[in-house]
Deep mutational scan, measured.
Amino acid sequence: NQESVVAAVLIPINTALTVGMMTTRVVSPTGAPAEDIPRLISMQVNQVVPMGTTLMPDMVKGYAP
């Protein structure tokens, strides 16, 4: 099972992602793949992402898996 990126903390809208904001988990439906964490760092979210929420590609500005 592939791990997806999950918010480790509450991420406010327009916040640039840091490694400490993200964790990985096997979830369904799958979100952004765990191996993309290095690409996701410094990208901004376009909505509030509550802690424990799977990071879906459409939540991150300019990100395409």
Score class of each variant (00 low, 15 high):
Asn1Asp: 14
Asn1Ile: 14
Asn1Ala: 14
Gln2Gly: 14
Glu3Pro: 12
Glu3Ala: 15
Ser4Cys: 08
Ser4His: 02
Ser4Thr: 04
Ser4Tyr: 07
Ser4Asn: 03
Ser4Leu: 06
Ser4Gln: 02
Ser4Gly: 00
Ser4Glu: 01
Val5Asp: 00
Val5Gly: 00
Val5Tyr: 04
Val5Ser: 00
Val5Met: 01
Val5Gln: 00
Val5Leu: 03
Val6His: 00
Ala8Thr: 11
Ala8Trp: 08
Val9Trp: 04
Val9Glu: 09
Val9Leu: 07
Leu10Pro: 03
Leu10Thr: 15
Ile11Trp: 05
Ile11Arg: 00
Ile11Val: 01
Ile11Met: 00
Ile11Gln: 00
Pro12Phe: 09
Pro12His: 09
Pro12Leu: 09
Ile13Leu: 10
Ile13Trp: 07
Ile13Glu: 13
Ile13Lys: 15
Asn14Ile: 09
Asn14Thr: 08
Asn14Met: 08
Asn14Glu: 06
Thr15Leu: 06
Thr15Cys: 10
Thr15Asp: 02
Thr15Asn: 04
Thr15Trp: 08
Thr15Ile: 07
Thr15Gln: 03
Ala16Asn: 11
Ala16Ser: 13
Ala16Trp: 13
Leu17Ala: 03
Thr18Asn: 05
Thr18Pro: 04
Thr18Met: 08
Thr18His: 05
Thr18Glu: 12
Thr18Asp: 07
Val19Pro: 11
Val19Trp: 15
Val19His: 12
Val19Ala: 14
Gly20Gln: 14
Gly20Cys: 14
Gly20Met: 13
Gly20Lys: 14
Met21Phe: 07
Met22Ala: 07
Met22Trp: 05
Met22Asp: 07
Met22Phe: 04
Met22Gln: 07
Thr23Lys: 07
Thr23Ala: 11
Thr23Pro: 07
Thr23Glu: 10
Thr23Phe: 09
Thr23His: 08
Thr24Asn: 07
Thr24Trp: 09
Thr24Ser: 13
Arg25Ala: 13
Arg25Phe: 09
Arg25His: 08
Arg25Gln: 09
Arg25Ile: 08
Val26His: 12
Val26Lys: 12
Val26Pro: 07
Val27Ser: 03
Val27Arg: 13
Val27Pro: 05
Val27Asp: 06
Ser28Phe: 15
Ser28Gln: 13
Pro29His: 03
Pro29Tyr: 07
Pro29Trp: 07
Pro29Asp: 05
Thr30Gly: 11
Thr30Trp: 12
Thr30Ile: 15
Thr30Arg: 15
Thr30Met: 15
Thr30Val: 15
Thr30Leu: 15
Thr30His: 15
Gly31Trp: 04
Gly31Gln: 01
Gly31Ser: 05
Gly31Ala: 03
Ala32Ser: 07
Ala32Asp: 04
Ala32Thr: 10
Ala32Glu: 03
Ala32Trp: 14
Pro33Lys: 06
Pro33Tyr: 06
Pro33Trp: 06
Pro33Asn: 04
Pro33Arg: 07
Pro33Ser: 06
Pro33Thr: 03
Pro33Phe: 06
Ala34Thr: 06
Ala34Phe: 04
Glu35Ile: 13
Glu35Ala: 15
Glu35Gly: 13
Glu35Val: 14
Asp36Gly: 01
Asp36Gln: 03
Asp36Val: 02
Asp36Ile: 04
Ile37Gln: 04
Ile37His: 01
Pro38Glu: 09
Arg39Trp: 09
Arg39Pro: 03
Arg39Met: 11
Arg39Ala: 07
Arg39Val: 12
Arg39Asp: 06
Leu40Cys: 07
Leu40Asn: 00
Leu40Ala: 02
Leu40Phe: 01
Ile41Phe: 00
Ile41Gly: 02
Ile41Thr: 02
Ile41His: 00
Ile41Pro: 08
Ser42Phe: 09
Ser42Glu: 05
Ser42Cys: 11
Met43Asn: 04
Met43Pro: 02
Met43Arg: 11
Met43Asp: 02
Met43Ser: 05
Met43Glu: 02
Met43Lys: 14
Gln44Phe: 12
Gln44Pro: 05
Gln44Tyr: 13
Gln44Ser: 10
Gln44Leu: 11
Val45Ser: 03
Val45Asn: 02
Val45Tyr: 03
Val45Gly: 02
Val45Arg: 00
Asn46Thr: 11
Asn46His: 06
Gln47Ala: 06
Val48Trp: 12
Val48His: 11
Val48Glu: 15
Val48Met: 15
Val48Arg: 13
Val48Ile: 12
Val49Phe: 06
Val49Trp: 04
Val49Ile: 14
Val49Ala: 01
Val49Met: 01
Pro50Arg: 10
Pro50Thr: 10
Met51Ser: 10
Met51Asn: 05
Gly52Arg: 01
Gly52Ile: 06
Gly52Glu: 05
Gly52Leu: 07
Gly52Asn: 07
Thr53Lys: 10
Thr53Arg: 10
Thr53Leu: 03
Thr54Asp: 01
Thr54Met: 05
Thr54Arg: 00
Leu55Tyr: 04
Leu55Arg: 01
Met56Gly: 01
Met56Leu: 10
Met56Asn: 04
Pro57Met: 06
Pro57Ile: 08
Pro57Gln: 04
Pro57Tyr: 10
Asp58Ala: 13
Asp58Cys: 14
Asp58Glu: 14
Asp58Gly: 13
Asp58Gln: 13
Asp58Asn: 14
Met59Trp: 04
Met59Tyr: 05
Met59Cys: 06
Met59Arg: 01
Met59His: 04
Lys61Val: 14
Lys61Cys: 12
Lys61Ala: 11
Lys61Leu: 10
Lys61Met: 12
Gly62Glu: 06
Gly62Met: 05
Tyr63Cys: 00
Tyr63Asp: 04
Tyr63Gly: 05
Tyr63His: 03
Tyr63Gln: 06
Tyr63Pro: 04
Ala64Met: 13
Ala64Trp: 14
Ala64Gly: 11
Pro65Thr: 11
Pro65Ser: 12
Pro65His: 10
Pro65Met: 12
